[in-house]
């Protein structure tokens, strides 16, 4: 076996029938799952911040903000789920930037595959990450005494909305990942944008006490609309309008940024 390539393996291997776009996308999804197996540390990155936020806000600020820790947790938990998903969506953009830097993306681009498949794969990874992180945070919430009034159906509906939110926001970071050269810059830029959007919302506090100009922003902030819908779904008080308003931003982001993604991918 000294002489590496034996002629037998090089007898022309013909190309099998062209796989479907779905099959291409599933392969990239499989890759995302493998990453969980080989880099389990990423789970730690995904849930540490939200866990700390949950504990900090519930026990340190909760009493002052809502009278008691228990009441505050009831208010806060659906919001922290939104925050978790929106923050974690950055992960895909960083991964993409790494793939491009390493030249792996060039290999994908030189293959005869569905051009959006690598992104669909990132999204599959994202959805898995959102579900896992969401479940862990919800589990901790339940352990601390959070009770979703709407029960299991409400929680399932809320998680479906959560996935839609993550999917929509994911496009922002995929576009950043395609434009920005290093993964750390992707992260810094993303959080510069995310911090105001997440904190100037109704996740942590009722905006009633905010100055008018800020309240005007908070009320139309997509994160607020999403949080309101999450609270509604988990608390059993949601109406259709609330849910639809929460879906406006994810839908617009997908419609607007998916074509941009494809264009950037081809242009590179």
């Amino acid at each position: 076996m000294k002489d590496a390539v034996t002629p037998a393996t090089l007898t022309r291997v013909e190309r099998p029938a062209q796989p479907s776009p779905l099959s291409n996308a599933l392969v990239f999804g499989w890759r995302a799952v493998l990453k969980f197996r080989h880099v389990p540390e990423q789970l730690f990155d995904l849930v540490m911040t939200p866990i700390m936020f949950t504990l900090l806000f519930t026990f340190v600020f909760g009493g002052a903000l809502a009278g008691s820790s228990g009441d505050y947790l009831q208010f806060f938990l659906p919001g922290i789920l939104v925050q978790t998903v929106v923050f974690n969506a950055v992960y895909s953009g960083m991964g993409l930037s790494t793939d491009i830097g390493k030249g792996l993306f060039d290999r994908f681009r030189s293959l005869p595959i569905w051009p959006l498949a690598p992104f669909a794969g990132l999204m599959v990874g994202d959805v898995l990450r959102h579900l896992i992180a969401g479940t862990i945070i919800l589990g901790i919430g339940l352990g601390l005494g959070y009770r979703p009034e709407a029960g299991v159906p409400g929680v399932l509906a809320a998680f479906a909305l959560l996935v839609a939110i993550g999917f929509g926001f994911g496009w922002i970071f995929i576009v950043l990942g395609l434009i920005v050269r290093t993964p750390t810059t992707v992260m810094t830029l993303s959080f510069t944008f995310l911090f105001p959007v997440v904190f100037a919302s109704n996740i942590m506090v009722d905006p009633a006490t905010m100055p008018d100009w800020l309240r005007a922003f908070v009320e139309v902030n997509p994160v607020t609309l999403m949080t309101t819908a999450m609270r509604g779904l988990m608390g059993g008080t949601a109406d259709l309008g609330e849910v639809l308003r929460a879906l406006i931003a994810p839908a617009l982001l997908t419609l607007g940024l998916a074509p941009v993604t494809l264009w950037l991918y081809r242009r590179q």
């Binding site: 190309r15 029938a17 390493k102 994908f108």
Partner: peptide, 22 residues
């Protein structure tokens, strides 16, 4: 530059590409 996924095993890399080819 070696255009492979460094987190995956060598075999997983080739299986992934083989699947992409169909």
């Amino acid at each position: 530059f070696a255009s492979l996924d460094e987190d995956l095993t060598g075999r997983e890399n080739l299986i992934m590409l083989a699947r992409l080819w169909g």
